Simulated scan of single mutants.
Amino acid sequence: MGMSVTISTAGQADAEQILKLQYLGYQGEAELYGDWTLDPLTQTLDSLRAEIAEQEVLVARLGDEVVGTVRGRVDELGVAHIGRLVVHPRMQGHGLGRRLLEAVERRLAAEHPVTGYALFTGHRSLANLRLYARHGYRQTAVREVSRRLSIVTMEKAASSSLAA
């Protein structure tokens, strides 16, 4: 009998597993851009613990193992900023990223007055771009960080958040 993946709020006790998953999950991004100094790869455990205390951090668990995570926060204008959506490589392609994205959107909207959603990804991260577009996000800006990397900002209105 297989176990099902559950999504819940992360606690401080999850910090080490999240950091390890983040490091594993961002290896492909680092290779894609030829840059192993990406923030998720250099984040410290203390800084992650601070984010868990200050933001909405969700984890997807398969038994006791954290196999996915996402973070979100709402700014003073009501924009929900979503970031660090990571799914364990062996769990990719099964809808877990979609479930995490929808869960963090719902959670943020339930706890704050949300006017819209914003996130960003690299220009070569085609699977990410497709996922976000399928969920109503539209490209609003592209910022060149280096010759190898441009950051694509995507946004959507709050009213379209759960329409997917």
Results as ranks from 00 to 15, higher is better:
G63S: 09
E144H: 10
I82C: 10
S160E: 14
A110S: 15
E76Y: 13
A158R: 13
P113Y: 03
A133L: 03
E54H: 14
G11D: 05
T140Q: 08
R73M: 15
Q12F: 05
T121R: 09
R106W: 10
V104S: 12
T37A: 08
R90W: 09
E56N: 13
H88L: 00
L96D: 01
Q22L: 11
G136N: 01
G63F: 09
V145S: 08
G72R: 08
V114I: 00
G11A: 02
V104C: 13
M3Y: 02
V59K: 12
A157T: 06
V142W: 01
V152P: 06
L96H: 00
G63H: 05
T140P: 08
S4V: 13
G11L: 01
S146M: 00
V114E: 03
K20F: 11
H123P: 00
G34A: 09
G68Q: 00
L149T: 06
G136F: 04
L21I: 05
H94T: 11
G93Y: 00
V70F: 08
H94K: 12
R107A: 15
S160F: 05
R148Y: 04
A30W: 00
V87H: 07
I151T: 09
R90A: 14
R98P: 07
A164V: 11
A80T: 03
V104P: 04
L58Q: 06
G25V: 02
I52D: 04
M154K: 11
A10C: 10
Y26S: 11
A158N: 13
S161Y: 14
W36S: 13
G93A: 01
G28A: 09
R99Y: 09
L62K: 08
E144T: 10
D64F: 13
A80H: 01
A13Y: 04
V74T: 05
G68I: 03
S4M: 03
E144R: 11
